[in-house]
Amino acid sequence: MKLSEILSEVKAKVLVGEEKIDQLEFEYIAASDLMSEVLAIARPSMVLLTGLTTPQVVRTAEVVGIQAVVIVRKDSVPSETLEMARACGVVLAVTKMTMFEACGRLYNKNLKPVWGA
């Protein structure tokens, strides 16, 4: 599924990397608020959903090669986090939707979990 479609499904606003959202496509989604968990399950071809807004989230994504991060249940994201995303070339988007709803909607669209995939 195209990243642009994924983002509109969860009503997310793109903060960094707008120009890439029509090119990138993903099959897998992972949702986590734990860095070590992200590191443990991540694969490059997935979108990360998280409730964290720290620059750390972006760095963690970068280390495992995740190209897109969606921050849930937030209005805004600290500027350091945006800068980090720009520096790492990671697409960053934010939505007010809860984690539960965002996951439910994407699951409905046949996006797959990374576990056992």
């Binding site: 734990l34 860095m35 070590s36 968990e37 590191l39 443990a40 964290l52 720290t54 963690t60």
Partner: peptide
């Protein structure tokens, strides 16, 4: 901040 799951060392090992 998203740390403290107690998974770090296990991740390294893996």
């Amino acid at each position: 901040l998203g740390f403290g799951a107690g998974m770090g060392l296990a991740n390294m090992k893996r």
